[in-house]
Amino acid sequence: MGTTATYPGEDHRHRGPGYRQRSVFDAANLGQTVRWLLLLIGGILMIMPIMYMISTSLKWPHEIYDLALIPNEPHLENYWFVLEDGRFFRWFVNSIVIAAATTLSNVLFDSLVGYTLCKFRFPGRYLVFIAILSTLMIPTEMLVIPWYLMSQSFGWLDTHWGIMFPGLMTAFGTFLMKQFFETVPDDFIEAARIDGLNELEIWWRIAMPLVRPALAALAIFVFLGNWTAFIWPLIVTNSVEMYTLPVGLSSFGDEADVQWELIMTGAAISTLPTLVVFLIFQRFIIRGVVMAGLKG
């Protein structure tokens, strides 16, 4: 796929006589109507867990056994209760800080490395390329023990830095960016060089603006990945104040002493931000996911 790639939803092709945009309820279009209905039912089933999570977070304790999706007396008391408790608010802030800082770092460094590997010819280039590529094969789980020992000896346990240091750069992001810098014509860079810009300025002022969609795709992936990250934050944190949202949610432990409407409120608080962002930038994010998926 090049830059002329089409993404779902754009350039909708009509692949046969049955696909003309007549009314879906046209008799000749019965097959299409059935297809649409089945897909709609499937799609509604897909979002049911999310809908029930939200619905339960709006219910009173006595209502949670009720199967009805719409609460009898919807209210926001659970949200006030959970946020007043302070812990969730703290975890929310931790998650935001970590996801934002990691995203910023990845956007800067992955693109800088990708750009260098793409546009410079220098001794050692191939070695660096292969070395970074090879780290893609190493699973995170293999590194958590050494990271833990490292954090222990440097005093990084239970700190923000400790949670985020392993993810500050990723091989995936580097290759994604390298692929996209291939689309930046060398002539542009040469012209900027003749105009007297130094290499740092060329990267930042000429090349970076040309790959903005890729940067956004990378940012989405990194942010979502760190927002939902679980195993490493679980290992590296041990005080309640340092938990991220997933670790905090997990800490409620046994279902016997759980108040389901409050847990659902907590789950909603940790899920709704990404869902809302997705719904706003829906088309753009799906395009980014396709780009990252197919190029990275």
Binding site: G43, G266, T271
Partner: peptide
């Protein structure tokens, strides 16, 4: 576009939160 959003939404959720659900 609407149907696509329905199918894609679960991908944007947090595994730990959905595990509770």
């Amino acid at each position: 576009g609407f149907l696509r959003v329905l199918y894609f939404l679960p991908f944007m959720t947090t595994a730990v939160a959905m595990a509770w659900v």
